[in-house]
Design a protein around this nucleic acid. Sequence first.
DNA 1: AACTCGGACAACCGCCTAGTG
DNA 2: TCACTAGGCGGTTGTCCGAGT
Length: 342
Amino acid sequence: MDVEMMEVMAGMMAMSPAMSSVTAGAAASEDEGDLRRGPWTVEEDVLLVDYIDKHGDGHWNSLARCAGLRRTGKSCRLRWLNYLRPDVRRGNITPEEQLLILELHSRWGNRWSKIAQHLPGRTDNEIKNYWRTRVQKHAKQLKCDVNSKHFRDVVRYIWMPRLVERIQADSAAAAVVTDCGVEVAPLPATRTMSSPAGAYHHHQQLVPMPAAGASHHGGGGDGDASSEPIHVVTMSPDDASSRLRSSLPTEAHCAQFTLPSLAAAAANGVVGEVAHACGGESRPSVGDDVIHGDVLSGSWSELLVATTGREDAGGLPDFDELGDFEDNSLWSLDDIWLQQQC
DNA sequence: AACTCGGACAACCGCCTAGTG
DNA sequence: TCACTAGGCGGTTGTCCGAGT
């Protein structure tokens, strides 16, 4: 464990009230058997990070023993993957990420780890939590099941277009004001977003989905829909020193998203691309209200009235006016993008 | 100021699958 | 072929914290 890592750990302790506040609580269960349970202490985190730093991960059960951790291998693995891993991104789910989650969930359902593969730095746990707390909340407001056709319609014809609108609006603002030192052209659907993972430079591309099994997770790897074009977002950390600091919420960076035309997508098979911008000083981003919450914050009834322009919308818009689509034909970003262009 | 409630998220649990002897 | 083990994954629970009353 080098000094830098220790500094990072201290920073993480400072930013994680749960971690610091539960240290005493975790000790209460320390004597229950040989294995500890409950929240991890800073000391345990240091042990785990230190060991993995020196020996790498994997073989979690033996790793837990060798590292001197009185934890199950599973617990160590989870702690590492969901919290301590250097490239874990923390903070609010951006509109782009929301859009991607909605899109991918429409394809794969609750395949959280599979979805997470396309959102670098985001863990399956985080995406799962997002879905349960945000998306299912909206479904509940609509008094319908999250997997129902009605809710899928709402997502496709209201939520996702609004996300796209937000992304476009933010991109327009970003074209005027950017603190990244990078010229951002006012292209459609181009925006600058903020992210708490400030230490990273993101190179995000929407490219054809890689072959099944390319996942670092190794398990599963079912190749369903693997031939479909899909977002693949890659990230490359600048340097080791910044990695864990990326979890600090005060830092931000900018990344530029570009969603090219369908024509271009059809021509080269690339649905879109997200160009990287820069790291830099933290500042409130454009569309901060969105980034810190849902685009669909506010009541659904208001939203539906606003969308349909009818007071008597009756809870759901008249989707028949919006075009046909098969019941089992879920939306795609292409559809949303096309709709926005009309 | 005290209390309640809901959101957010870390952590655990149980099941499944792949690998190995 | 079968049993065992490790790892992965999705579902669920527990806890903290902030907003609202």
